[in-house]
């Protein structure tokens, strides 16, 4: 099924063809078995889309409505069963109360640990925590602000998580970010019954717009759907975790069917550039491809200039 065929199938099923076009189409169905088979598949997929849409609507309706208890009288056996269960529960409760009231207090079989031992343990624990904190503090940098990127993105090291060992060298990352602009393609549909993943995505978009990139990753870092992965890749790139960002962008760039295929190639180039010159070969090959795409031609030229 190619684009041309899909377009023709759409026109035919929506009755948008002229009488002549319709005749040609029907003749092709008759003459070309592959075309006819593709048309059948198209109709099946379209029917499947409708069926799934209605099912989704029903599921959402079931979630949205006020569930009222059934007004039908319960069968007699259910009432008897409930009555017996109540009686049994009551009897067990009475027996328990009786047992507790009548039984004498037992001495403790296990003496409590001497206070000195506990204090020692506490002090050891305190020491461990202190040393752990001081170890950790060594990795947490003082709050310094990386200059804003062409007025688009301002990244504070501490707030945004920059400065971990795995992060890219600062200057190179800053150079890459100078060419970065936020993606256009981040909208989503909010419905009355969005999935958990949809809700997280929408919350993450708000955080992303507020430049809280670390929080974006904390919120959607474990989500596996395409739009969350894509948004997280941006958050990772913007917090200097360029290698993780590279992996995600590369997957999208390699997937021709992905919604984010085209844009991801450009952001992959930026992530690779942040680790330049180690990534030289892949970056050269990618920039050569991107130079042929009108939307990215100028951006890639700027990137190549920086590579030199």
């Amino acid at each position: 099924m190619d684009n041309f065929n899909i377009e023709n199938f759409e026109l035919y099923v929506t009755n948008a063809m002229s009488a002549d076009e319709k005749m040609v189409f029907e003749q092709k169905i008759f003459d070309d078995p592959q075309f006819a088979a593709d048309f059948e598949h198209f109709k099946t997929l379209k029917a499947g889309i409708r069926k799934q849409s209605l099912q989704d609507r029903l599921d959402i309706l079931k979630k949205n409505i006020d569930h009222k208890p059934s007004e039908d009288p319960e069968p007699l056996r259910h009432s008897w069963a409930s009555y017996l269960l109540y009686l049994l529960g009551l009897a067990i409760l009475m027996a328990l109360i009786f047992y507790l009231v009548r039984s004498p207090e037992k001495p403790e079989t296990q003496p409590s640990l001497p206070a000195v031992h506990t204090q020692k343990q506490d002090s050891l624990q305190q020491q461990d925590l202190d040393s752990l904190r001081s170890d950790t503090m060594r990795f947490i940098p003082q709050k310094t602000v990386v200059p804003a990127v062409k007025g688009k993105t301002s990244v504070s090291k501490q707030d945004k998580g920059y400065a971990d060992n795995e992060f890219t060298p600062k200057n190179q990352w800053r150079e890459a970010m100078a060419l970065y602009s936020k993606p256009q393609n981040l909208a989503s549909i909010m419905r009355d019954g969005p999935s958990e993943s949809d809700k997280k995505f929408n919350d993450a978009i708000l955080l992303f717009k507020a430049s809280k990139y670390q929080e974006v990753t904390a919120l959607i870092g474990n989500e596996k759907d395409e739009k969350n992965l894509y948004l997280n890749a941006h958050a990772l790139l913007l917090t200097g975790k360029t290698q993780q960002a590279t992996v995600i962008f590369r997957n999208f760039a390699d997937d021709d069917f992905s919604t984010y295929h085209e844009e991801s190639r450009w952001y992959l180039a930026l992530a690779l550039f942040a680790n330049y010159p180690e990534t030289k070969d892949e970056l050269n090959s990618l920039t050569a491809q991107l130079l042929t795409v009108p939307d990215y031609k100028q951006k890639v030229a700027d990137l190549i200039a920086k590579m030199k």
Binding site: T44, L45, A47, G48, I49, K51, Q52, Q55, S188, I189, D198, D225, E226, K227, T259
Partner: peptide, 18 residues
């Protein structure tokens, strides 16, 4: 076939599904 199309759509995921 209709059920297969349904399952395929579920596997397709967002944003294609929408």
């Amino acid at each position: 076939d209709l059920n297969k199309a349904n399952t395929a759509l579920m596997k397709l995921g967002e944003p294609c599904k929408s």
